[in-house]
Amino acid sequence: MIDNKVEILLVEDNPHDAEMTIRALRRVNLANKLIHVKDGAEALDFIFSKGVYSERNVDDKPKVILLDIKMPKVDGIEVLRQLKSDEKTRSIPVVIMTSSKEEQDIITSYDIGVNSYVVKPVDFEGFAKAVSQLGYYWLITNQSTQ
């Protein structure tokens, strides 16, 4: 495994949520190989090596994608749909992280093939706990198909 390989792709438009997520992951030392993109369009560019990420090797897949739903331009559900409809990216684990407890979003996400769905707790302690558990699970416990 090459060190500079991205392990976590965080797709989050809210900078405060992103900061808290990164802080929680750093606490448990999982934030070293994390890249944060600000919206869905950028996330797709990164994954499919387009736009500013055209130089990137498409085969370097992140170990997990933490995806917010409500974002400008392309929302999380659309990103998930494109990822799961493409052969090359289908196997990447995606965790939806959202403030919404809207059941329709949850159902749609699982229909498309999301691997995990997490509602962000309001209080920081709960949030940090949830994020660190996610990081542990997808980066260490879960054996990826690769």
């Binding site: 809210n14 405060h16 949520d17 808290m20 403030s99 962000k120 707790p121 309001v122 920081f124 949030f127």
Partner: peptide, 11 residues
């Protein structure tokens, strides 16, 4: 919830 989480988080 989002701003509240920020309030909680930053405090």
């Amino acid at each position: 919830r989002t701003p509240l989480r920020a309030v909680s988080g930053y405090s």
